[in-house]
Simulated assay, not measured.
Amino acid sequence: MWTKVKRLFVIKTRFEAYLIIYGLALGAMTRGAHYTVEYPGVGGWLLMAATAGAVFLGGAKILDAIRYEQEAKKAAEADEQAAQ
């Protein structure tokens, strides 16, 4: 039963990754908009840029990790078939 619950929290496809990244970006831009109000001027805009940059870096890492996991799975399957 726990394996079924754990599978809900695993990103398996690029589509799921894009949905997660979209949610992160939406929250980050909302936070960035609050920063521009809370810290008027250049400081607020720099903090908003930092929140956007964090989403770019995190999103790239998520997409790279998915690609790596899919390639590793294919390689393991190929090795298993070669061993038979």
Rank of each mutant, 00 (worst) to 15 (best):
A28R: 02
H34C: 10
I62F: 07
G27P: 00
K73T: 10
T30A: 14
A49I: 11
Y35P: 00
F15Y: 03
V42G: 03
V10W: 11
K73F: 05
I11A: 08
A75L: 10
T13M: 07
E77W: 02
E69Y: 13
L8P: 07
G44I: 00
E77N: 09
L63G: 05
A82I: 06
E80R: 11
A83W: 10
A17E: 04
L63F: 06
I21R: 00
Q81W: 12
E69R: 13
A60V: 11
T36P: 03
E16T: 09
I21M: 02
P40F: 00
A76S: 12
L24V: 02
L63Y: 06
H34T: 08
G41Q: 09
G53N: 06
A76N: 07
I20C: 08
T36E: 08
G23F: 04
A33L: 07
A78I: 05
A33Q: 06
G53K: 01
A65E: 15
E38G: 06
Y35W: 11
F15D: 13
A54Q: 08
Q70A: 13
R14D: 14
L46E: 04
A25M: 10
I11M: 11
L63H: 06
A75F: 09
V42D: 14
F9N: 08
A60Q: 12
A28C: 05
A82T: 09
W2I: 15
K12F: 13
V42P: 05
A78C: 02
W2S: 11
G27A: 06
L24A: 13
